[in-house]
Design a protein around this nucleic acid. Structure first.
Lengths: 163, 163
DNA sequence: AGTATATAGTTCATTTGTGTATATTCAATA
DNA sequence: TATTGAATATACACAAATGAACTATATACT
């Protein structure tokens, strides 16, 4: 995204042609799209040297964020924002790489438990320094306060979906 | 995304395991990801009955946002946040549907000009009422003021990428 | 002019993601 | 207990997106 000023211009033209088009909501959603694409491309590039892509990284981190390094596929789909069919594929890849293992659960035999292996944890802790740098870079234009404000607003907006 | 409180919990655990992990940047980027996925799924679902998906919708709107309903592929890639190879494919589909036309430019013979057809404009103005509703729904939890604040913060954050 | 370098766009092989159907198990209730 | 309906995960066919290589044109420099 070079120049967001032209976005304003495009919106002006759009509204001139179609006055009911809501300016503010359109700007916000377009900004979110652009930001996501940047974050995504950035993370993909960073993870490349580790033989992982952004969704795989995401999956690993969601598991790492649990006390016992494990989640069920449906939970994973939910927290990682991936479709369940995609989780099956992604976790399959990560199994092949030896970073996670699949096991059935006794309490509910429909469920599968996905758990990080020691190699998985090692891999995570290997790339985390790069990720830390990345995250700081991605938010470098915002003060801590502003990040806090952004958090509040994004959560609020997110709350409007899904019911 | 069910419950963002669990995101906080995951982050706490992650930080306990790896103290250098930056809380605030991680929250913000995760929120952006989730929000994008929601916006994307939502828009895909809404455009379905028009035989279009979100990226195609986006391309059409970017063209509609210009005085003469036209852009070059590279401009389109930039403003729509798509890779150029993908723009080729997407615009090809839209050509097939009769919504845009491709033409060469005389001033720079490397360039191609993509222009909405009257049918394209008609299609846009056909689905825009739904989009207007959609945009309002997606931002319903935010006041106009808050949308303004969000705009400022997102722009600021976006400014930190790419140099 | 001639050569090198950059830009615009496309093509193609591969990777990544989606929707739908299916098998299995669980939960509710008649 | 038998039956119905929901939930979990997967398989598979198809759709979408990416990276890298390639063609053609333009620009800069000597």
């Amino acid at each position: 995204m070079r120049d967001f000023a032209t976005t304003e211009a495009r919106l002006d033209i759009t509204i001139a042609k179609y006055p009911a088009f809501p300016r503010q909501p359109a700007i916000v959603t377009r900004l979110v799209k652009h930001l996501f694409k940047e974050i995504n491309d950035d993370a993909n590039a960073a993870m490349r040297r580790y033989g992982l892509n952004h969704p795989e990284y995401n999956i690993l981190m969601m598991l790492y964020g649990t006390p016992d390094n494990s989640l069920h596929p449906s939970e994973l789909a939910d927290v990682a924002g991936e479709k369940s069919a995609n989780v099956t594929r992604l976790t399959g890849q990560l199994c092949d790489k030896g970073y996670i293992v699949r096991s059935g659960s006794e309490d509910d035999r429909r469920k599968v438990t996905l758990t990080l292996t020691p190699e998985g944890v090692e891999a995570i802790e290997g790339f985390l320094p790069d990720i830390v740098t990345l995250l700081h870079r991605q938010t470098r234009n915002l003060t801590s306060d502003e990040q806090g404000q952004l958090e509040v607003l994004l959560k609020k907006m997110l709350g409007g979906f899904g019911e």
